[in-house]
């Protein structure tokens, strides 16, 4: 897998580039495992409450803006492809391509945040932000408030991860453009890609769980 026999940057604790690359990859996957369990706590809460209050979750879900969420799902999926292509470009030392693909990925991430922002603004206007001003017409308004609490919580943490990702991608793009940092040294880009794909996976689960509960009724 280590395609670059002449890696210029070898930290003093490592014997060779393969060892360094393996360590970094395992480390990143362990970090992703921690993220899985971090989000997992919220997914567990979602499961418990949806099981306990099925009707409130159905009613709450029908108040979400499915086309905003659906578009965002597509945006993130496409950004994952551009990121995968960027990692590929880095492994082939094609700097110009790498920079433009990273910028494309960052723009798609930013687009996701903009769409999400409009969605949030709409929900605040509709009094769907949990708290004293929360108001919803539903059979169990308090339980529906729990649905929206979970909605804001999970999309909020996810949006935070997207925002961090966008900033990181922009930093990487700048470094790829102005320096030789990733020439024959594509591991950092690869790890950035893993993070970005993970963020995408979270949305792959969040979208149906939050937007698609009993849409047919």
């Amino acid at each position: 897998m280590s395609s670059s026999p002449t890696t210029p940057i070898l930290a003093h604790q490592f014997e060779d580039a393969t060892q360094q690359r393996d360590a970094a990859t395992i480390g990143m996957w362990l970090f992703i495992a921690t993220e899985i369990l971090f989000f997992g706590g919220m997914f567990l809460g979602y499961t418990v409450y949806r099981y306990t209050y099925p009707q409130a979750f159905a009613e709450g879900s029908q108040h979400t803006l499915i086309w905003f969420g659906g578009t965002n799902a597509a945006v993130l999926l496409i950004s994952s492809t551009t990121m995968a292509l960027a990692v590929h470009a880095a492994s082939e030392n094609r700097r110009a391509l790498l920079v433009s693909l990273l910028l494309g990925t960052a723009s798609l991430g930013a687009l996701f945040l903009v769409i999400k922002g409009f969605e949030y603004a709409h929900e605040v206007k509709e009094n769907l932000l949990p708290g004293s001003s929360f108001h919803i017409v539903a059979a169990e308004p308090l339980k529906a408030e729990m649905f929206f609490y979970i909605y804001w919580l999970m999309t909020g943490f996810h949006a935070l991860h997207v925002a961090i990702g966008v900033v990181l991608i922009l930093i990487f793009a700048a470094r790829a453009f102005f320096t030789n940092a990733f020439v024959n040294h594509d591991t950092p880009v690869d790890l950035l890609g893993l993070y970005w794909h993970f963020v995408d996976i979270v949305w792959v689960f969040l979208f149906p769980l939050l937007y698609l509960v009993d849409r047919h009724s």
Partner: peptide, 20 residues
């Protein structure tokens, strides 16, 4: 990827399964 990495990929989901 190497088989070792598959274990690390699976570990997070496996432990999530324990929790659930």
């Amino acid at each position: 990827s190497k088989p070792l990495l598959w274990i690390f990929v699976a570990a997070g989901f496996f432990w999530l399964g324990i929790m659930f």
